[in-house]
């Protein structure tokens, strides 16, 4: 037969053509909408003009012109400090809280209270960012808000927190804690439910109290999961989701709330300075990549837990 000395790879592909068919839609979409834009990144080095297209547009002179413009721009310092500051603040609050939450839920006996507790604490996660920021505004508004009412009760004048730059980061981080702590604890609950029950029984026989079991069984069991999530968070130190920050921004808090993502949006979509915006974004991606690799390398050195 003609195919008898065909290599095993070709045979495998021919046999499993159905599987490749199943893969096809996602591969096409990724090529068109993930890989093609990656190629478009070169406009960061060009003077992009819509009429000439990506290839036809002339190279920027010098090639790092737009990067230089960002480094020299007025917003460089603001965005480059706000982004990691918000992330570090968020890390110190929203990294440990889900762990604590999981430890608390793990202490509850299976039953109605536990079920209700979990259902309710997961729920805010499903509220949209727009509604969430709407809620924040309703609660913090000095006129109609909850904050205002409490201040009235205490007889003090209600501050306009949404308009104060110094309050922005705290509002951002603690509203995140309210919304996502329950949901983020699921992963730790799953890790805790994998603990062998004999471990607890042995500890009970040895006379360990509940607190000691928590300290010497539960917490050590969470460390691998926690370190991987920590690496991922630190690796993302220089990136911050656009939506919530953008929705919470106003002219009064801009000095604390302008981050790289919102600046990229304003320059690119509102200002139509495509090359400049792409350059800022590219600079950010490179920093993120370096961070992720560095953090992964460090954790690999000091513990066995790493992403790769």
């Amino acid at each position: 037969m003609k195919t008898s000395y065909q290599n095993p790879a070709a045979k495998n592909i021919r046999q499993n053509w159905g599987l490749y068919l199943l893969l096809l839609p996602s591969v096409i979409l990724l090529i068109c909408f993930a890989y093609k834009p990656m190629y478009g990144v070169i406009i960061a080095f060009k003077d992009y003009k819509s009429a000439s297209g990506i290839i036809g547009s002339p190279w920027a002179d010098p090639w790092y012109k737009y990067f230089l413009r960002f480094f020299k721009s007025f917003q460089f310092k603001t965005t480059i400090t706000n982004t990691p500051l918000i992330n570090i603040y968020s890390l110190t609050v929203n990294f440990p809280l889900p762990i604590i939450m999981a430890l608390i839920i793990n202490q509850m006996h299976a039953g109605k209270f536990k079920r209700v507790f979990q259902t309710i604490t997961y729920m805010p996660h499903f509220i949209s960012t727009v509604v969430m920021v709407g809620l924040i505004r309703i609660f913090l508004s000095p006129g109609i808000g909850f904050m205002g009412n409490i201040c009235n009760l205490l007889g003090i004048e209600a501050p306009n927190l949404m308009g104060e730059a110094s309050a922005f980061k705290s509002i951002y981080v603690w509203s995140d804690a309210w919304q996502h702590t329950g949901w983020d604890s699921i992963i730790y609950i799953a890790a805790l439910s994998n603990i062998d029950i004999y471990l607890y029984e042995a500890a009970t026989i040895d006379g360990a109290s509940k607190l000691q079991k928590l300290r010497y069984i539960d917490i050590p069991m969470l460390i691998p999961t926690a370190s991987i999530l920590l690496i991922m968070r630190v690796g993302n130190l220089m990136s911050l989701g656009f939506e919530k920050v953008y929705l919470m921004q106003n002219d009064l808090n801009l000095s604390a709330s302008e981050v790289i993502a919102t600046y990229v949006y304003k320059i690119g979509i509102n200002g139509a300075q495509y090359s400049y915006s792409a350059a800022i974004n590219m600079f950010n991606t490179i920093i993120n990549f370096i961070l992720l690799i560095t953090v992964n390398q460090i954790t690999k050195k000091i513990s066995e837990n790493s992403l790769w």
């Binding site: 478009g40 979509i269 991606t285």
Partner: peptide, 14 residues
Amino acid sequence: TMFFNGGLIPTFLT
């Protein structure tokens, strides 16, 4: 593609 993307503007142009 989880770690790298073209970013806002190249994606917009695509």
